[in-house]
Design a protein around this nucleic acid. Structure first.
Lengths: 250, 250
DNA sequence: AGCGGGCGTTGCACTATCTGCAACACTCAT
DNA sequence: ATGAGTGTTGCAGATAGTGCAACGCCCGCT
């Protein structure tokens, strides 16, 4: 692995916490100021880092543009989008699409609820992996040893009293999800919000993405939400069919 | 500037165009395969690059997370958001917030129209700088020589017959915008879409961001849209006041 | 089966490239 | 004015990155 590049890239998460000046960057990297300066300059030339008026460094614009182009190149997303919009038009609630990548689950698309209540989630944001319905679906399909390895490594924050408390409970839940082919999150992340989700499968039958519908208690009860399950599953299957049949070489 | 880091970072835009394998990356960088491999590995370790099943490399997940955190650290955005939502509730059309950074204008927030017609724009996406109302507002406030320099460097794509055709026309338009304190884009980007925008100013009176309201012809005519101008300007001023008064050291 | 091309990977010797230092420039605050 | 704090530059030394060549592997071809 390349030391110089390694150091340079370590600057990015550091700046993600907030702006920092040259000295701070150098100290946190454990290198001399002049070294940090050169690295920052290089990052700057590539637009990944921006220097504000007070001379402090911040993450830069091209980072957005890159993340942007990256998300647009995901073909599942492209195929799924119209289906998600259609579903949203039918049921009105927030619809999410997520993928698994390197021990993280992240939203790659979202269609907002038509009800005034909005959820705090954003495309690109890592998902609450131990409780979200989409996370359960994606992890449930991993090969057993990998699933175990990931489950052991995770933290299990108690967002609410119904959050998944530990690895054992999580693995049990994943087994259920794997079995039944759908998943829920009933107030496990936010007390008053329930989700139901279904997997999207590629040609080989592997789960390549997952979608979910979320709604707050005040709009529909968990039971009412569950009645939408067949519709959600049908949508997921429609996306799966289109994705599997797609000509895109993979 | 650091050569190694420079090379590594050059890989990112390259991958933004689409997945590529080791050989392609090496060729386009003009380095030996083994060198490209090490760079890619380093990028991979930092999550900026992801290796898909077919071994090809793609932009990775952490890129989203970084862009995400970066955008959340922009305090204008945080302050503006509730105002934008309120405005959207009053008038229903799409509301955008944008900033200027290193010769680019980019959207940092967006509230979707309540009408079925959606616009193609995304947070993080660079704006059509020669025509967008927000771009005019942000550029109009640059010091004269910089404004000139930027205007000369730009391309002037003719999206429609009403697009800004060249630097001279653009500079003239900027002068008008600067004078009147608001801006429009009447079908300059997409034939059927009009926008009106207003500047958001910091404590020193400099324009730090710009907001706009966009609506398609089929919903409201340009004249009708212009009647909303006072409301938009009041919103921008409210944001400016809150931003200027904010305790955040800048 | 056997063969050959394509691609990713590894170890190594060489030196180009990065590093830390120390001195300098600049801006503020006292 | 003076000094502390911060960012910047040039340079000599040596670390760390480079290209090479050889290897292993997978696939398709005959």
């Amino acid at each position: 692995m390349s030391q110089t590049v390694d150091r340079a890239l370590s600057i990015l998460p550091l700046l993600a916490e907030g702006p920092a000046d040259l000295g701070q960057v150098a100290t946190r990297l454990g290198v001399h100021k002049s070294t940090a300066l050169r690295l920052l300059r290089t990052l700057h030339d590539h637009g990944l880092v921006y220097r504000q008026q007070d001379q402090r460094y911040r993450l830069g614009a091209r980072l957005f543009a890159l993340a942007q182009e990256a998300v647009e190149n995901l073909d599942v997303r492209e195929i799924a989008h119209t289906h998600l919009v259609t579903l949203n038009e039918q049921i009105g609630h927030t619809v999410h699409l997520a993928v698994y990548e390197e021990s993280e689950v992240l939203y790659i698309d979202k269609v907002e609820s038509r009800y005034p209540v909005r959820m705090y989630s954003r495309i690109g944001k890592p998902v609450a992996i131990t409780v979200a319905a989409v996370a359960k679906l994606l992890l449930a399909d991993l090969p057993e040893h990998e699933r175990r390895a990931v489950a052991e490594k995770l933290d299990y924050p108690l967002y609410t009293s119904r959050s998944t408390p530990n690895a054992a409970a999580f693995l049990k839940e994943l087994a259920t999800v794997r079995e039944q082919g759908w998943a829920t999150d009933l107030g496990g992340h936010e007390e008053s919000i329930n989700c139901i989700g279904a997997p999207i499968r590629g040609a080989a039958g592997r789960v390549v993405a997952a979608m979910s519908v979320s709604a707050p208690n005040v709009v529909v009860t968990a039971e009412e939400l569950l009645t939408l399950l067949p519709l959600v599953r049908r949508t997921a299957e429609a996306i799966s069919r289109e994705y599997s049949g797609s000509v895109t070489p993979h």
